[in-house]
Write a protein that binds this DNA or RNA. Structure first.
Length: 188
DNA sequence: GGAACGATCTGC
DNA sequence: CAGATCGTTCCC
């Protein structure tokens, strides 16, 4: 099912648009459509894997299909899907979701904020994703990657520059669904 | 041991 | 546009 994840991050990142993230929290079920992604690889100075494997990036250098969750700015978590072969050090950052299920819990988790899942740290807070899910297999358990309900047309995918980085800024490795209101910010 | 730096978000 | 806030990495 998730065989397509065994490719480089820049190939997988646009393919992940339209796939759903499914989160089980006790009685509650949260679900959202992936509408914005970014690719990161080892040959990429903006990537955590750029300088080789460290304790922090161990998951990123593992097999595809696992969650890589990192902590940043002293207060935020960001969620990635590991891609490629083991040892490759590539992953796709999930930057925005379109909520489908569990909106009341999502709102609660976001403390009543109006913007719910239009940013990598916001969606982690909304879906209660933190470090303890890092390394989790997305084929099973409380956090799942599910296939699209409807395929995204290639003409509806925008490729543009990534957000919040200072190195390798020219790569067009950010992908989002054209005109989707839940994207974090419009690109070029 | 210590300094520098974030794949961000919020409020002014 | 500045501040929050702390784990990770790297250098001494």
């Amino acid at each position: 099912m998730l065989d397509f994840l065994n490719h480089s991050a820049e190939v997988v990142a646009p393919m992940l648009l339209g796939w759903r993230l499914h989160r089980r929290l006790g009685e509650h079920t949260l679900e959202g459509v992936i509408v914005e992604t970014e690719a990161y690889s080892q040959q990429d100075a903006a990537s955590h894997s750029y300088k080789g494997q460290t304790p922090r990036t161990e998951i990123m250098f593992g097999p595809a299909g696992k969650a890589y969750v990192y902590f940043t700015y002293g207060m935020h978590y960001c969620f990635n899907i590991v891609t490629g072969k083991a040892g490759e050090g590539s992953a796709v950052l999930i930057r925005a979701l379109q909520p489908l299920k569990g909106l009341s819990v999502i709102r609660q988790n976001r403390l009543g904020s109006v913007s719910l899942t239009n940013g990598p740290a916001k969606l982690c807070q909304a879906f209660q994703i933190d470090k303890h899910l890092s390394g989790h297999d997305l084929c099973t358990g409380p956090l799942l990657l599910l296939p699209p309900k409807q395929k995204i047309n290639a003409t509806d995918i925008i490729a543009t520059t990534r957000v919040g980085i200072t190195k390798d800024t020219e790569r067009l490795w950010r992908f989002y669904i054209k005109d989707n209101v839940f994207v974090s910010k419009p690109g070029v």
